[in-house]
Design a protein around this nucleic acid. Structure first.
Length: 818
DNA sequence: TAGATTAACATTTTT
DNA sequence: TGTTAATCTA
């Protein structure tokens, strides 16, 4: 990346509210330095025309529709560099929001390489939430908060709600706190404060108490001088609405606004942004409606679809030139996503080679799938491919285990991305709770968490006593404890433990004046007995937990003081763990967004798993489209090779289920896809794709409403041809590969039913053709489920009550007469 | 109060 | 099947 000439020196910063520099004025010259911002500035020359337009269209609202791999981040960072280089604004006058801390860091780094130290003067580059807190901290008194308010995490939130439910005498079995938390989050995502919640909606939870609970929760937060994540935006919106002068101040401040991943914004974020954008109107949103995969947590694709009407006079620029993937991969992904209806529409193209086709491989079960992928990776490794450029992207995290097991056996280095986050681990949260207690004597939730960790003999009964006193006197729990220990109400033993605990806190607070916060943390963990608790623990993970605690202390080092550290981690829940080692990357499709790899394995493309049944059940067509976008994201992560897998049998919750290939396979264009045999020769034919794929699926019956592909789609026909050729070939392998049971299955198939009728490559489901040879009440046998009795027949699908496995719907072809 | 047993449940995840 | 949280019992 070319360095801008302006990186050498910071210009004098304006006072917060001083007028902005005039374009081309003194500041511009100062910024541009010796090299004036001529039309052909080096940082612009590497851009294609659309990218360049997106960088140079600075005035007024702009939506940049950036398809996968079209240089979105580059546009965003270059745009900021351009604004700075042309002197249109000071670094402190640019608001740049991202969703994740990682994205914010990345953006900052990349701007830094172009602009140098100037990026350090951008306090308003960060996540929605980080910027939200920054604003709230400045004006806390206007939203009824005291300075130093705390930010609750999900855990605290749920514990608080649990208390509320108990107080309201609501059965928290029937109405779990988790559900209430999700409901309230949902409201907050939509920008609704308690009074705005539609009465009907508020009534849904706990027989009409939903709205009341929400209000009570907000009141409790205020009492605790705390906010949750949703409030960081919601209170910001309220602040701006109720205080036009404050809003005006920010209008004057922010000359340019930029938003990354706009398709992921929720309503609250949109409202917040729109308020701020009313000032300069120079708001640039970058996103891709086809990569909106967070609808389930409040993201509104509508925000991006409606941009032009939301921001009148908006320009729209499409980035469609893909620099990442080869032609086949791009074509396959484009055809797939074209099945979605609600989209703005982009046509990605690349100028590179077609490359290799996307492969689709069937496996008998998830074990074979893992083996086949493991083998392929070993082959790639032998051929010299770096493992770090290979990724396995799964729909659901339970799929990861099988791969991990396999890689451990093979001795293949791998790294699981995502999963339980560092700061969410119990030991870390406990340690943090101790530090929070030292930092603030009024952090009730933290106190509650550690009052009996390690075990001190403070049980529910004692805790209730403390609560009662605290509520009566309207004081924090720690103060209540002090009162109690001075009274005679407690048993002597409990009294002295609590006394001791308070003394410890007092001592630590005293020491915090003279010690560094890392030293303090070590002392706290040591003297509280927390470290000792894990040292005594004999369980397997104890050593790891102790290691994590050390890591926690290490991670505190860069911060100035305890308060600074605590503020940071309340917003940044991830930790930069060392990338760079050569290992296969295993992660969910969701966490793969924004990443790219040479080779991408996409296992588990089966109906029910991908698209996930739950998405279909809960969200219907919208859910299906989001799943399809997820599939699109998956394929477009690949630079050179995308390899899709599906298994015919998968164990879900410990029970084996036979599965049907994903409809998304049918939606891939034949000319860009290559069907491969699973290694071992029993994948595609003998192992069930043929068997499991013919006949109607429930989606074919639902066909019209789902807009599902017909039997004439390439994918379907491909399946047919595979089935025909593959089945016989596979039958030979059956006995050898799977043992006796399977052999019996194979022969039954051949002799009893034969293949269903095929007409011109199109399969006619047996519901329209030959009647089933089975009848209700008949005893049957299934390879995985064992013996059972037929309780229902639907086309070529049988409902069988298995003796051991319970009732299941299975394809007739997997069943034989007992 | 603490350990032990058992029942329920089981996408996706950031802040 | 494997985990987690709630409930039971010593």
């Amino acid at each position: 990346m070319t360095q801008l000439p302006l990186s050498r020196r910071h210009p004098a910063e304006p006072a917060p509210d001083s007028p902005s520099p005039r374009p081309g004025g003194i500041a511009a010259r100062a910024l541009a330095g010796a090299a004036p911002a001529a039309p052909e500035t080096p940082y612009l020359s590497g851009l294609n025309p659309e990218q360049r337009a997106a960088v140079e269209t600075l005035e007024g609202p702009l939506l940049v529709l950036a398809g996968a791999g079209t240089g979105k981040t580059r546009v965003l960072t270059t745009r900021i560099a351009h604004i700075l280089a042309t002197g249109r604004a000071y670094p402190s006058q640019i608001l740049a929001v991202t969703f994740t801390n990682k994205a914010a860091r990345e953006m900052k780094d990349r701007i830094g390489t172009m602009v140098g130290d100037l990026v350090e003067g951008m306090p308003w580059l960060g996540t929605f939430h980080a910027i939200g807190v920054r604003i709230l901290r400045r004006h806390h008194e206007l939203v009824g908060l005291k300075s130093g308010f705390t930010i609750l995490d999900t855990d605290d939130q749920i514990r608080l709600l649990k208390q509320l439910l108990t107080a309201e005498n609501i059965d928290d079995k029937r109405w779990p706190a988790r559900l209430l938390a999700a409901t309230i989050d949902g409201w907050k995502n939509r920008g609704l404060s308690p009074k705005d919640v539609p009465a009907g909606e508020g009534a849904v939870f706990a027989n009409g108490k939903g709205g009341t609970l929400y209000a009570a929760y907000q009141a409790r937060l205020k009492a605790l001088n705390a906010v949750d994540f949703g409030d960081l935006l919601l209170e910001g919106i309220r602040l701006f609405r109720e205080n036009p002068d404050v809003l005006a101040e920010y209008h004057r401040k922010f000359k340019y606004l930029l938003v990354d991943e706009y398709q992921d914004t929720n309503v609250a974020q949109y409202l917040w942004l729109r308020l701020l954008a009313q000032g300069s109107k120079n708001v640039c949103c970058v996103g891709d409606d086809d990569q909106s995969i967070y609808g389930w947590r409040g993201a509104e694709v509508d925000n991006i679809l409606r941009f032009e009407s939301d921001f009148p006079g908006a320009a729209v620029i499409r980035l469609e030139r893909n620099y990442r993937s080869t032609g086949h991969i791009l074509a396959a992904a484009s055809h797939l996503i074209a099945h979605n209806e609600g989209r703005l529409g982009k046509t990605l193209f690349s100028e590179g080679d077609d490359g290799e086709r996307v492969t689709v491989t069937g496996a008998w079960d998830s074990g074979e799938e893992a083996r086949a992928i493991g083998d392929e990776i070993e082959a790639l490794q032998r051929a010299g491919h770096p493992l770090s450029q290979i990724a396995i992207l799964v729909r659901a995290s339970f799929q990861m285990r099988e791969f991990e097991d396999r890689f451990v056996t093979l001795g293949l280095p791998y790294r699981v991305i995502g999963g339980p986050r560092f700061y969410e681990r119990a030991e870390i949260r406990d340690a943090l709770a101790y530090l929070r207690c030292v930092n603030s004597g009024s952090d009730d939730l933290a106190f509650e968490r550690i009052v009996n960790v390690p075990k001190r003999g403070i049980g529910d009964a004692t805790l209730k006593q403390i609560h009662d006193v605290a509520r009566a006197a309207r004081v924090p729990l720690q103060d209540a404890v002090r009162v109690l220990t001075e009274s005679e109400e407690l048993k002597p033993k409990v009294r002295s433990t609590l006394r001791g605990l308070l003394d410890m806190f007092a001592r630590w607070r005293e020491q915090s004046r003279v010690l560094s916060h890392t030293e303090l943390a070590e002392i706290v963990l040591d003297e509280s007995g927390y470290t000792e608790m894990w040292q005594k623990d004999r369980s397997a993970e104890a050593a790891g937990r102790l290691e994590n605690l050390k890591e926690l202390v290490r991670s505190m080092e860069p911060f100035e003081n305890l308060g600074g550290f605590l503020e940071h981690i309340s917003l940044v829940m991830d930790v930069d763990n060392g990338a760079g080692e050569d290992a296969v990357q295993v992660m969910t499709l969701h966490s793969a967004k924004g990443l790219e790899f040479d080779t991408v394995f996409l296992p588990g493309w089966e109906e029910g798993l991908f698209p996930h049944q739950r998405a279909l059940d809960d969200q219907g067509k919208a859910g299906l489209e989001e799943e399809r976008r997820l599939a699109y994201v998956g394929i477009t992560r690949a630079r050179a090779s995308a390899r899709i897998y599906f298994a015919s049998n998968r164990r879900i919750h410990g029970l084996w289920n036979s599965t049907l290939p994903s409809r998304f396979l049918d939606e891939l264009p034949d000319s860009h896809v290559k069907v491969e045999e699973s290694r071992g020769g029993m994948g595609w034919g003998g192992s069930g794709y043929g068997g499991s794929s013919y006949g109607e699926s429930r989606f074919d019956r639902a066909g019209g409403s789902f807009g599902s592909s017909s039997y004439s789609t390439p994918g379907w026909q491909r399946a047919q041809s595979q089935r025909e050729g593959g089945f016989n070939a596979g039958a030979g392998n059956v006995g050898a590969g799977r043992g006796g049971a399977r052999g019996a299955h194979g022969s039954t198939h051949g002799s009893t039913h034969g293949s269903p009728p095929l007409i011109e490559g199109t399969l006619v489901a047996s519901s329209t053709g030959a009647p089933s040879t089975f009848s209700r009440g008949e005893r049957v046998f299934h390879v995985k489920f064992g013996y059972g009795e037929i309780t229902g027949i639907d086309g070529n699908k049988l409902t069988v009550q298995f003796d051991k496995a319970g009732e299941k719907r299975v394809l007739e072809t997997f069943i034989e007469k007992a």
